[in-house]
Design a binder for these strands. Structure first.
Lengths: 181, 181
DNA sequence: GCTGATTCGTCCATTACTCGACACACCATT
DNA sequence: AATGGTGTGTCGAGTAATGGACGAATCAGC
């Protein structure tokens, strides 16, 4: 992978952080490009150097986090569920500002469905309906069942300010998932 | 005052913060230009764009703080001592990392004397040996007496982790100064 | 309707920064 | 005396970001 000029990394980081901060203050629709460039301490034209418009910026921001989670699952593919779940919740914790913004009532409506889609893709390789105890079940039903459950509990955990630490969440969610699958 | 390109401000800020952080970790002599540029996330050549060498960087950093304190005293010249002293201690508090680094045992030996010199200049305009109760005193003696007392108590306060809030320090130091002058 | 104020997206000349290289000095090891 | 390693200060070519401008689009209040 070619090394990227540090100016690009710094500018993009500042822009993305600025958007996230602004989204925690007001609605995405009310945010102007000028707002973002002011908060990021970057010239307005610099934003257009990297993104089409603010929607493209939001898309890239979301895609980046999905990609990061994908890498966690790659890394944890051979690990047991509990450890993997803990890695996820630690990632949610590290990026609390992002997730709380995206999952809040006035957040990005598109994010939740992308998140759910991603989670279901992850479960897809773990679920085996040919197992004995699942002979009456199909993936079509199991995946949205597990996926919405998972997304729902993450949503609860984030919106309520992470009332318990990642290991505790990993333990409980791990138990529940193993009962289902 | 001509508006300065934001890239310059950002680079210089990063470089100065990097030096301060490094000085809290190891001795100034052991810090290389490469260390600073790494920590600041800036190319090595960028440092030479703004400073002669690391000594010049330290000088400019110190001078900047002295200048900031000079502006406080300009602003507070008409205010009573206690308010002015509180403004100073709030500045020390805001820039705790800088002062604790500079005043620590392995800090910049030059800073303490520059600091003392500055403080004595400030006192110089406030002390009046022609007053009745001072008729046996001279400025030559009063200034280093008050100056070292002031610097000494600041040193104590910083090195001991600011054990009391700025208003409390302002009160006590204010009382003591008024007894002397 | 019109108008003034914003915001947008784009453009260009200039500037600051980057990257990698260079010769040089210093120091410890051999 | 020769060696390898590390830090220094400088250089040039290339790139990213800047400031300021522009016309077009959108919107509010009159």
């Amino acid at each position: 992978m070619a090394k990227i000029d540090r100016r690009i990394l710094k500018s993009q980081l500042a822009i993305k952080q600025a958007l996230m901060q602004l989204m925690s203050e007001k609605s995405f629709d009310d945010i102007t490009i000028q707002d973002i460039s002011d908060k990021a301490d970057v010239h307005r034209a610099t934003i257009y150097l990297h993104y089409q418009d603010k929607f493209d910026l939001l898309d890239k921001l979301i895609e980046e986090h999905i990609q990061a989670m994908r890498e966690i699952s790659d890394w944890a593919c051979e690990i047991d569920w509990r450890t993997a779940t803990q890695a996820y919740f630690e990632y949610f914790e590290q990026n609390y500002l992002f997730f709380s913004t995206m999952l809040s009532s006035k957040g990005a409506p598109s994010f939740r469905s992308l998140f759910l889609q991603f989670i279901m893709e992850e479960f897809n390789e773990e679920v085996d309906p040919s197992e004995e105890r699942n002979h009456e079940l199909t993936k079509e039903v199991m995946l949205p069942f597990m996926g919405t459950a998972y997304v729902g509990v993450v949503e609860w955990w984030i919106i309520n300010g992470m009332p318990c630490p990642p290991p505790e969440m990993a333990k409980q969610v791990g138990i529940l998932l193993e009962r289902i699958v």
